[in-house]
Amino acid sequence: MDSATTSQVQLTVNGKPVTLELDTRTSLLDMLREHLGLTGTKKGCNQGACGACTVLVNNRSVNACLTLAAMCQGASVTTIEGISENGRLHPLQEAFIRHDAMQCGYCTPGQIMSGIACIQAGETYSAHAVREFMSGNLCRCGAYQNIVAAVLEVAEQAGGRR
């Protein structure tokens, strides 16, 4: 490839329509961080191995680093910045604070997005199931057991309301 080409990408990010003229090589992750200033989604390895960049695309969790922005034409993307409503934290964000499910905080947005996907997928019938589901999200500080406790607690609350 000698020179870059650009393409227009239209999508919805956290409920807002967005139109961008992007280098076709731009990943969804770099689109969020570098073009939209949504730096809550983190770049940890840029190889799909750490999960720090987890976002929801059409309500499914994906590694934003392995997704080209151009693949998201017409898609609805939800990031960590889009899960609070009217300044009220998402129940899983509150649970993460309660259980101190973080230390440095860098993997935390990705953990929360995966946690939301885990609860939506119903993979919360046991601690073991949560641990398996959440194993794509590395936490080098080692907050795993607190993360599992937070996800299980929110899953139970959600189940109780049903």
Binding site: L38, T39, G40, T41, T79, I80, E81, S84, L89, Q93, F96, I97, D100, M102, G105, T108, P109, I112
Partner: peptide, 9 residues
């Protein structure tokens, strides 16, 4: 600083 960390801020 947990509120900043869980919101990506």
């Amino acid at each position: 600083d947990a509120p900043l960390k869980v919101t990506g801020r």
